[in-house]
Design a protein around this nucleic acid. Structure first.
Length: 229
DNA sequence: AACGTGCTCAACCGCTGGAGC
DNA sequence: CGCTCCAGCGGTTGAGCACGT
């Protein structure tokens, strides 16, 4: 486990598995009347034999008003593909660009359909540049560029934190996502390698290593600055 | 009709970040 | 500062369904 304690809903007291219509209706009614300020207390207050986490998931993915059911449109699928290329598997971020779709739905449609379709099209054309960014997509280049800027800011924050020379300097995953699956051309500069600078006692050599890392990343960041999607 | 296989998607699990004490 | 607690996220699982043989 990470921070915090083990979930308390693993006792034999709670129901698991598919939700019945009755349970769903109970939860919907309760939340519509009382809101959802504390998921943990909801099952007890609503009279459900479920854990709070399960209630939250049921509400977010199924009961919440405005949820779109049914097949994804071509435009939605294109949007998912484009955002996945730009952001990686940030399903909640991608979902925020598709009103009415949940991160779970998007994750499912990606894992079961879009990923395979993309793989197929790549292997059939065998051309990296074959993925076109058509104008019918719901995602604009501004959206992708703004996400890209966020990634750059985060990258810089990571680097500043690592200046303390105590932690590992890792290639930020966020940057790698931009070039995942080779759908966006790789930068003409080599990808920075993660570097270990554990517990350097010598401040000078520590500084030199950090500078080298910064050089690598600034070259990458310059490359990103000059790209338009 | 019976069986095997693949697909879909709701739900679960483990982990993380952040707030509060 | 360290611990507990909670919400949220992404990966994984498995029941149920569709389809082919």
């Amino acid at each position: 486990m990470g921070k915090g304690r083990a979930p308390r809903c693993d006792s034999g007291q709670v129901r698991r598995g598919a939700w019945s219509d009755e349970e769903s209706e109970t939860l919907r009614t309760f939340i519509q009347l009382n809101g959802h300020h504390n998921w943990r207390s909801i099952p007890e207050l609503a009279g459900l034999k479920r854990c709070g986490k399960s209630c939250r998931l049921r509400w977010i993915n199924y009961l919440r008003p405005g949820i779109k059911r049914g097949n994804f449109t071509k435009e939605e699928e294109e949007t998912i593909i484009h955002l996945q290329q730009a952001l990686g598997n940030k399903w909640s971020k991608i979902a925020s660009h598709l009103p009415g779709r949940t991160d779970n739905d998007i994750k499912n449609v990606w894992n079961t359909r879009l990923k395979k379709r993309l793989m197929k099209s790549i292997s059939s054309t065998n051309q990296i540049s074959s993925v076109s960014y058509s104008s019918s997509s719901l995602v604009s280049s501004e959206v992708i560029n703004s996400e890209k800027r966020d990634q750059e800011v985060k990258t810089e924050e990571i680097l500043v934190e690592d200046m303390a020379c105590v932690f590992e300097v890792k290639a930020p995953q966020s940057l790698e996502f931009l070039f995942q699956d080779d759908q966006i051309p790789q930068p003409p500069v080599s990808k920075p390698h993660p570097r270990e600078i554990h517990k350097q006692s010598d401040h000078e050599s520590c500084d030199r290593m950090v500078e080298a890392v910064l050089d690598d990343y600034s070259e990458w960041l310059n490359y990103l600055d000059n790209q338009t999607f």
